[in-house]
Design a protein around this nucleic acid. Sequence first.
DNA 1: ACCTGAACACCGTTCAAGT
DNA 2: ACCTGAACACCGTTCAAGT
Lengths: 200, 200
Amino acid sequence: MAPMPTQRPYHHGDLRATLLKSAEHTLRTRGAAALSLRELAREAGVSHAAPGRHFKDKQALLDALALAGYERLAQTLETADEPGLALEQRLAGLARAYIGFAVDNAALLELMFARKHDPDVSEQLAAAVDRSVGSFTRLIADAQERGEIVAGDPERITLVAAAGMHGLAAFIANGTFPVEEALAGLDEHVHLVLHGLRPR
Amino acid sequence: MAPMPTQRPYHHGDLRATLLKSAEHTLRTRGAAALSLRELAREAGVSHAAPGRHFKDKQALLDALALAGYERLAQTLETADEPGLALEQRLAGLARAYIGFAVDNAALLELMFARKHDPDVSEQLAAAVDRSVGSFTRLIADAQERGEIVAGDPERITLVAAAGMHGLAAFIANGTFPVEEALAGLDEHVHLVLHGLRPR
DNA sequence: ACCTGAACACCGTTCAAGT
DNA sequence: ACCTGAACACCGTTCAAGT
């Protein structure tokens, strides 16, 4: 006789992925403060000590979430980027994608930008950040070649562009600035970043 | 006979302020995750339930810390602002003050920008944010009057300037961008925000 | 290799009772 | 008005033991 399929086997089989999925859901619906390993274990129908086999501690799970977040963000930006567009439209597209991600994943973004990751994963994390910033870097480099962006250290120029987007995303994510207003004015924001605050 | 002065009286006398001071210290030295009401009570030499008289829950203490942080930030910016300077130097001064605050108070800034404050205090918090942003707003308004800043909604232009600074501060605070490099290139960053990324 | 169950040392919050 | 002490319902983490 085969064992009853309705009853959970002793080994879960895919606990790590299940925990991460469940954690993402909790993060989205109830915020990072509501994340508890014991609760995730309960939801997975597993003992409270089982998560310890897959994540050495709670921070390891948070790091894994952050890493997955960067992967998703990087892919979102890469998909959104249209290299054929004129500079301003291209940057606006990236900005819209980034702000959209920030709005849809506010709690995750906060976790991604928390400064308390294990040193072991911080290089993995740095690589993931680089991939996310990469879309901006490419845009700047392309435009610089065409003379559409000021000469100078491309890393610094990318930083200015990315900081402008990230600062806006942070203001939106924490409610300092209303979402709709920010989205409605995004093209103007991008225009001001490209053309500067001084009159021409 | 008077009671022994070496022994703590039943009433602490200034528990609320003591808890806040102790919390600020823990925040600075060990980060937000290490904050515990019970530990703060222990350090104050008081029972673990005593903090409950002064803060209805832990979030209330975090909110009080955030509020005090904004007060300090606002004052730092107001002190740093020199309205007599030329626009670019004036903005650079504000930027240096803000980034300096971010570097010296990374954990506090993270707490200040967390999006989970009680609705009761969120209007107080909004007022404190406005006061902090106020220095940037005044600078923009002054410069607009002199025609040194593009015409248009001053709130939006302030947002672009403040987002540029805050994004940089966030990158520094979480280690994405090294502190010294950011400080060394701050004048150039400000220049790029004012003059734009497009060639003139 | 993966999971359980018990144990340990913590939490935040509440509430009657003390001063 | 302010604080204590006990109680309650949670945590994260560890570790022998089970499958």
